[in-house]
Write a protein that binds this DNA or RNA. Structure first.
Lengths: 369, 369
DNA sequence: CGCGCATCTGACAACGTTGTCCAGGCTCTA
DNA sequence: TAGAGCCTGGACAACGTTGTCAGATGCGCG
C-alpha cells in the first residue's frame, strides 16, 4: 500500500488479481499449452491451416496479398478453433486502443444517461469503445478512475470533473491522451471544456420569475465547489441585481442534493417570517425534491428548475425549466476529442452551449403573499 | 471487407486506425526512441534509477524484496518521468484484464442507468473496470459489441440481449468468459440469467385493474420478440383468463415503443366503439406516452404501467406501477458474474426477482362508461 | 529454355510487462 | 575467519500480435 506510483489503482491489484484470476487461470496453468483459458492464438490457427503466422494475421486484418485458397483454409481454421484476435496484444503492438474513457458523476442520474449515450455514439462512429465509471462526486475517486483509464491506454478521456485540480492529468495529456472536460471546466490545467451556459441560463430563469412579480426568490443548489452550482448562483445573483433586489442570505442554500438536505432547505425558506414566493432549483435532483415539497404547501409557490425533467409538462402546474441539451454536450465533447486525436485541433478552447427556457406554468405563478 | 473472421468488428479497423492514429503516432514515429506518444516505460525508469527492469516492476506492483533506498530511487524516477504502467502489456502477460463488459439496450433509458451503475459498483468492488455499449435493440449490433468486448478480453460479460440467438458466444464462454444475461434470458444457449418476474408482475397489475371493475383492458407493449414484452403479455392474458374475460385482439398492441406508435395504438383503443376503460402499459417508455394521451382524454381512463417512473407520485392521479428493481437486477447479475470468475459457480441458473405493485391512484379509477 | 519480375508467404523482431531463475553480497553462526 | 543461508537485484523468456524484409513460387517473355 502506498508504495505504488501515486495514483495508480494498484493498491487493490493484488487482492483483485487473487479474486479474479483463480479458477480459470489455475485451469490454464495446469494445461501445459495455452493460457488465457485455452484460447487459440494465431499460432494455433496457422498450425491448423498449415500456413505461417503472418498469413493468419493478414487474413484476420483483411490485408491484401493472400490467395483465395489460402484465405479459405485460414478462415476454416479460425471457425473450427473459435479463434478471436486478442486486442490486448494488438494494442500493445499498435499503440492505440480504439477506446475512450468517460468519467462521470453518476451513471444513474438521468442527466448523464443521454450524455453518455451521445459520447458512445460518437465513439462508435469512430470505431472506438467506451469505458466508463462514476466518480460519485468524489475527487479522489475521479482521479483514481481517470488514471486507471490512462493505464489502460485509452486514446482519449472525457471527464465530468468532481475535483478542481487536474494537474494529475498533465503527464497523460503530454503523452498524447486526448482530453475533454464536459459540464464543468478543468481545474489548474489548460484543457478543452464543453459547458452549458450555466450563468446565462440561471439568470434567464430567475429573470423570468422576477418578470412575473417575484422579489423574494429562493435558490437551492449543489455544493458551491462544483462549478455549475457556482455559476448558476452567479446567474441568480446577477438577475436579482439587475432587478435591483437585495439578496438575503437565507434565500440561498448550497449543499448536497440528497432529498433530505434539499427538503430541509426548502422548508426553511418557505416557513420563514417573510417566506420566499418562488424557488429557483439548481439542478434536476433539486427540482424533483422541491416539487414534492411545494406540492405539500397550501400556498402556491412559483418554481423554475435548471435541467429538464421527464413528465415535467404533465404536472400541475407544468414545471418551467432551464433546459440544457445533455446529448449535445456529450456529442460536442466527443467530437472534439476525436478531432484532437486526428490532429486537427491545437489550442484548448472553452465551448459554451446555450440553454433554453421552457415555460410550462410553474414559473408563471404570481407571488402569493 | 468481409474477409475478416465473421463477427469481428474488423472491417472498420483500417479506416478507424487511420482516423485515430495519425498525429500522435506519426509524431512518435518521427522520434526515434519511444513510441506510444513518448510514454516512458519501465525500462526508462530503470535506466534513470540505475536499477534493473524487474526491480521497477517490483516497486510498481508493491512486491517485496526491494530495499527502502532502492524503492525511493525508483519512485523518484517514476515521478520525474511521469511513468504509468501500461496495463495492456500487463494484461497480455497476466491473462486477465480486470474489466467486464456491459451490453445494454440504451444507456439513455432511465431504466438502465441505475442498472449500469449497480454493475459498475460491483465491478469496482472487485477492482474491475466497466466497458459498456448500447445495442439500440439491434441484434447484430449486440453481437458486434459483445464480440468486440471479448476481443478486448474482458473477464466477463453482462448482456441485456437484443437478439434471441446467442450461440455466437459459445466459443467465448467455453474459453472462460463469464457471462450473465440480465432482464431477458439468453437464446439457444445455456447461461445465467437474472430476470424480473415479468409474467407475475403483469398479471398482478392487470388483476389490480380487474379488481377495480375493469373488463375492457388494453395492453400496449414492446415488440413481441422481446422476452419481457412476451412475458408481460402472457401475464396480461393470464389475469384476464383468471377473471373469465375473453380478450379481444384489438385490445392488444405490440410494437416499437416510440411515442408515435404508442400514441396511435392508445388512441385507437380509446376511440373504438367499445373503448377500453383501462390500459396496461408494457414498460416505462410506453407508460410515459400513454400518460400523455390519457391526459388529453375527456374520459378518465385507468392506467397501470410496468416499471416505475420518476415523479409518478406527483401526477394527478398518481401513476400506479409494477416496479422492478433495476439496481438489484444489475447488482445480482454482476455478483453472479464474479462468482463465476472465482469458480464458486457451476451450473447456469435463472434467477427471478419479484416485482412490486405500487398503487398511487391511476389504477384505482373506476371504469368510466 | 532461361531469365526477370510480380506475387504470395513466412521468419523474425518488437511492443511493455511479469515470472523464473540465478548471481552476488550480506549476515550470522560455528 | 570460513561457510551456510538469506536477501536483493537483474538477465532472460514469454504473453499474442503486427511490421519488416527476404525467400519461394509461378508466370511471361525473349
Amino acid at each position: 500500500m502506498g508504495r505504488e506510483g501515486r495514483g495508480t489503482v494498484g493498491e487493490t491489484d493484488e487482492r483483485q488479481d487473487r479474486r479474479i484470476v483463480p479458477e480459470t487461470t489455475r485451469r490454464a496453468d495446469r494445461l501445459p499449452g495455452n493460457r488465457y483459458g485455452n484460447r487459440p492464438t494465431m499460432k494455433d490457427v496457422a498450425a491448423r491451416a498449415g500456413v505461417g503466422l503472418k498469413t493468419v494475421s493478414r487474413v484476420v486484418n483483411g490485408e491484401p496479398g493472400v490467395t483465395p485458397d489460402t484465405e479459405r483454409r485460414v478462415q476454416e481454421a479460425i471457425e473450427a478453433l473459435g479463434f478471436r484476435r486478442n486486442d490486448s496484444a494488438r494494442v500493445l503492438r499498435k499503440g492505440r486502443t480504439a477506446s475512450i474513457g468517460l468519467v462521470l458523476e453518476d451513471l444513474a442520474d438521468p442527466f448523464y444517461g443521454p450524455l453518455s449515450r451521445a459520447v458512445e455514439e460518437v465513439a462508435r462512429a469512430h470505431g472506438a469503445l467506451l469505458i466508463n465509471g462514476s466518480s460519485a462526486e468524489d475527487p479522489e475517486r475521479e482521479q483514481e478512475l481517470a488514471l486507471a483509464l490512462c493505464a489502460r491506454r485509452v486514446d482519449g478521456l472525457v471527464v465530468i470533473p468532481a475535483g478542481d485540480d487536474h494537474r494529475y492529468l498533465e503527464p497523460e495529456i503530454r503523452a498524447g491522451v486526448a482530453t475533454v472536460f464536459v459540464d464543468r471546466p478543468a481545474g489548474r490545467i489548460e484543457a478543452d471544456a464543453v459547458l452549458s451556459d450555466n450563468y446565462g441560463g440561471a439568470r434567464d430563469g430567475v429573470a423570468h420569475l422576477i418578470a412575473h412579480g417575484h422579489r423574494r426568490i429562493g435558490f437551492i443548489g449543489d455544493m458551491p465547489r462544483i462549478h455549475t452550482a457556482a455559476e448558476r448562483l452567479r446567474g441568480y445573483r446577477a438577475a436579482m441585481e439587475d432587478a435591483g433586489i437585495a439578496v438575503e442570505e437565507r434565500w440561498m442554500s448550497l449543499g448536497a442534493t440528497n432529498p433530505e438536505r434539499v427538503r430541509r432547505a426548502a422548508e426553511e425558506m418557505l416557513s420563514a417570517p417573510d417566506p420566499v414566493t418562488a424557488v429557483f432549483a439548481g439542478n434536476n435532483r433539486v427540482t424533483v425534491t422541491v416539487i414534492r415539497v411545494l406540492a405539500e404547501q397550501s400556498r402556491r409557490v412559483a418554481l423554475v428548475g435548471f435541467d429538464d425533467i421527464e413528465l415535467a409538462d404533465l404536472l400541475q402546474p407544468g414545471v418551467t425549466v432551464v433546459a440544457q441539451d445533455a446529448a449535445a454536450l456529450g456529442r460536442t465533447a466527443a467530437e472534439r476529442l476525436f478531432r484532437q486525436l486526428d490532429g486537427s485541433l491545437v489550442a484548448p478552447e472553452r465551448i459554451e452551449l446555450p440553454t433554453r427556457l421552457i415555460t410550462r406554468g410553474s414559473g408563471e405563478l404570481p407571488p402569493a403573499d
